[in-house]
Structure formats: structure tokens, C-alpha cells
């Protein structure tokens, strides 16, 4: 029997408190089928076996608390790792510039990794803590993203209440398709920018021309 089957059975037996626990440990990084559990919980709501509000409240609370634990682990447990990393990547300065870039871009990553790219959520939590992303902003994006994730998946579970496992598989496919497209867009943009930038020879020729103009 798989872990996923075991956790789904627990959800049926113990209801929303089981959902709270599974989403909490999932947010810290333990591989658990959080999205599938939310869909199944939505199906139980549709069947009248669970109440909608307890499912939404405990699902939301579990995921948000787990995200804060992940962030704290990165922030306070990751300093030693950060010091080692700075030696590997070639100095404190390089690590600092990577951190600055992440701080500028991470809001969107935090929000999207809550609901659209949920498999990346636990990695983003730890990275946010590790890079010293401001906690109030992390919490804001986290609350928004988790509210959307929990509500969306529970409602989808209610709507497709008689075939949630299959819907979960389908949503998983679309999640990875989106992640692939996002990665392709980032790589394509970086490649285009790189190709449009003047090459070393062009720069040299340009400078040479400028010097010739000045001397004439």
C-alpha cells in the first residue's frame, strides 16, 4: 500500500484534522499528496461526510503554518549552509547579488508556488528564508496563494466528487506542462537577450571606430 493510499484512508477516518497535519508536513518538505487530499476532502464535503468550513479552515491553517516552519528552517537553519554556499559559488559578493535578484523576483514565485506550481512550494519556503526575504511580505503572498489553492482544489473536488483521483492526475499533468512552458519562456528570453547583446568583437570594433573618430 502506498503512502498516498494510507493518507487518503486517514483523511476519511479522521477528517479535517488529518488534512491539517498532512498539509503542514507537506509544506515543510515531506512528499505528501496535498492537492489530491484537498480534492478528496472536497468530494467528502459534497457527500455530506465533512463540513465545508472546517475543511477550508484547517486545510488553510495547516498549509500556512507549514510554510512558516519551512521559512524559519531556511532563515535560521540555513545560515551555515549559506556560508558554505558562498564559498562554493565564489565568494560572498556573488551570493549577495543572487540574493538581491531573488528578493526582487520572489514575490511572484511565492504566490505561484502556493497554488499553480504547488510541487515547488516547500523549496520556495526554504529559499525565501535562506535569502532573508522579508517575512511580512512572505506571509502576505503565502496567505493569498494558500487561500486560492485550498479553495480552488476543495471546490474542484466538490464539482468532480465522483472521480477525484483522475482529476488530480489531470491537474498534475497541466501543472508540469505549465512549469515546462514557464521554464522554456525564461530560457528563451535569456537566449534572445544574449543573442541581441553586442558580441566582444562588435564592442571592440565599436570602440576602435570611436577612437579613430576622436583622432581624425
Amino acid at each position: 500500500m502506498s503512502l498516498s493510499d494510507y493518507l487518503l484512508g486517514m483523511l476519511g477516518l479522521y477528517g479535517p484534522p488529518a488534512l491539517f497535519c498532512v498539509l503542514l508536513v507537506g509544506a515543510i518538505g515531506v512528499p505528501t499528496p496535498g492537492s489530491l487530499l484537498l480534492l478528496v476532502a472536497g468530494s467528502f464535503v459534497e457527500q455530506g461526510e465533512m463540513g465545508l468550513w472546517p475543511v477550508l479552515a484547517l486545510g488553510f491553517a495547516g498549509s500556512v503554518v507549514g510554510d512558516q516552519v519551512g521559512y524559519a528552517l531556511g532563515r535560521w537553519g540555513g545560515r551555515r549552509l549559506s556560508a558554505r554556499l558562498s564559498r562554493w559559488v565564489g565568494g560572498e559578493q556573488r551570493l549577495r547579488s543572487a540574493e538581491d535578484w531573488l528578493k526582487r523576483r520572489q514575490g511572484g514565485a511565492i504566490f505561484l508556488s502556493r497554488w499553480l506550481l504547488s510541487p515547488l512550494g516547500s523549496v520556495v519556503n526554504i529559499t525565501a528564508g535562506l535569502t532573508g526575504y522579508p517575512w511580512p511580505r512572505f506571509l502576505l503572498y503565502d496567505l493569498l496563494g494558500e487561500a486560492l489553492w485550498v479553495t480552488l482544489y476543495v471546490l474542484l473536488g466538490r464539482f468532480f466528487s465522483d472521480r477525484v483521483e483522475e482529476v488530480s492526475e489531470m491537474l498534475g499533468d497541466f501543472t508540469w506542462a505549465f512549469a515546462g512552458l514557464l521554464l522554456a519562456a525564461l530560457l528563451g528570453w535569456s537566449l534572445l537577450r544574449n543573442l541581441r547583446a553586442p558580441s566582444a568583437e562588435e564592442l571592440k570594433a565599436g570602440r576602435g571606430g570611436a577612437v579613430a573618430d576622436e583622432t581624425s
Binding site: W176, A177, F178, G180, L181, L187, G188, L191
Partner: peptide, 11 residues
């Protein structure tokens, strides 16, 4: 880039 596009297409 091409590998990411292929993965996205397959999924």
C-alpha cells in the same frame, strides 16, 4: 529550452 518545450508538450 527545447527539452522544456518537449516536456510541456508531452504533459
Amino acid at each position: 529550452f527545447l527539452a522544456a518545450l518537449i516536456v510541456a508538450g508531452l504533459f
